Amino acid sequence: MDLILGADHGRRRSVRTEPTQRRSSQRLDALLDAAAEIVDELGFERLTTQMVAERAGASIGTVYRYFPDRVAVLHALRERSVRRFRERLAEAVDGAELVAWWDVVDLALDVCTELYRDEPGFAVVYSAPREASEVDGEPEIAHRVARLLEHDFGVIDDAEVRLRLGIALEIGATLIHRAFVRDGAGDARYLDEAHRVVRDYLGRHLADQLAAAPAA
């Protein structure tokens, strides 16, 4: 699980005041819950700090205690959504019987789909730039999956693997996002294509590395 949940490279927090007590943490989550509902109903472009305050039943001063503006609210909502994706993926990996390298990537796509269905505001993840590693500029999730593939299946974690994983997961995330734009429950055709296209892409561009990797 640590391979998925490890610390971010150069991660910057969007929250102005970090909650130090349970009550403050609950207040912050309530504000983000309110923002998530608004994003799902109206889209992230129309969200305002006043809307967040009203929906959460809080004063505007409470919102500004944590966030300087609406952009910071959206960034914090995205950070929370990304964290929950990683937590869900770590749990899925920990509880799964991984037979081949594809099982890891397959789980990542499945977890992304699940969160579109049951994590309010999760679509905001797609609307902002991905977290890039300071090591090589590739998406942070590509580094995490690469480390897991190396640990469990002997796929060497190198620049080429991270590049191809980053591209593949970006393609998959785009198709999953499009599936939910087309259909609130997720267009099954797009979801199926996300898995097929990503597997074909990785199988084609990492054929040598993946063929050399032993089964679990």
Rank of each mutant, 00 (worst) to 15 (best):
T17A: 12
D110A: 13
S127I: 01
G186P: 08
W102D: 08
G95T: 08
T113M: 01
G57T: 04
V82M: 10
R196W: 07
R88G: 01
Y64G: 02
A76H: 00
W102F: 11
R65C: 07
S133I: 05
D136L: 06
E91D: 15
F85D: 01
G121D: 02
G172E: 07
T17I: 13
L109I: 15
D136F: 08
L107M: 10
V181N: 07
R130W: 07
P68A: 11
G137H: 07
V39L: 00
V155R: 02
F153A: 02
T62R: 05
V105C: 06
R199H: 15
A128P: 02
L148G: 00
R88Q: 15
V181W: 06
I156N: 03
L3W: 13
R78M: 06
E41V: 08
V124H: 02
D110G: 04
E79A: 13
F122K: 04
R11G: 14
L163C: 04
A30C: 07
Y64W: 10
I156C: 03
H9G: 06
S14N: 13
A216S: 14
V52G: 00
R164S: 06
A30K: 09
G166Y: 08
L3N: 08
V124D: 01
A35T: 01
D118Y: 04
G10I: 08
H195T: 10
R70T: 09
G61N: 11
D158I: 04
L77H: 04
S59W: 06
R11T: 07
D106S: 15
R27V: 14
E150S: 12
R88W: 04
V124I: 13
F44P: 03
E131P: 14
H195I: 02
A207S: 14
R196L: 14
L5F: 09
L149F: 03
V93S: 04
L74C: 01
R130E: 14
R13K: 14
E150T: 06
L202I: 03
Y190I: 01
R86N: 08
S81Y: 07
Q26W: 07
I176A: 03
W101F: 04
A56W: 02
G172S: 05
L202E: 13
G57Q: 06
L163V: 08
R189S: 13
L32Q: 03
L163P: 00
A92Y: 10
L47R: 03
R86P: 00
D118A: 05
E45L: 12
G166C: 10
S59H: 12
W101D: 01
W102G: 03
A123Q: 12
R130S: 05
V39Y: 00
H9C: 10
V135Q: 12
A58L: 08
L28M: 13
D136Y: 14
I171R: 13
A168S: 14
E131S: 10
E97G: 06
A76F: 00
E54P: 02
T174K: 08
H9W: 12
V82A: 05
R80M: 11
V197T: 11
E87S: 08
P120G: 09
P139R: 12
M1F: 09
E114S: 10
R164Y: 10
G121T: 02
A30W: 04
L42G: 06
Y190H: 12
R27N: 11
L31G: 02
L107K: 12
V161Q: 01
D110S: 11
A35Q: 00
I171D: 05
V197C: 01
E45N: 09
R55G: 03
E79K: 00
R130Y: 05
L206V: 09
Y64C: 06
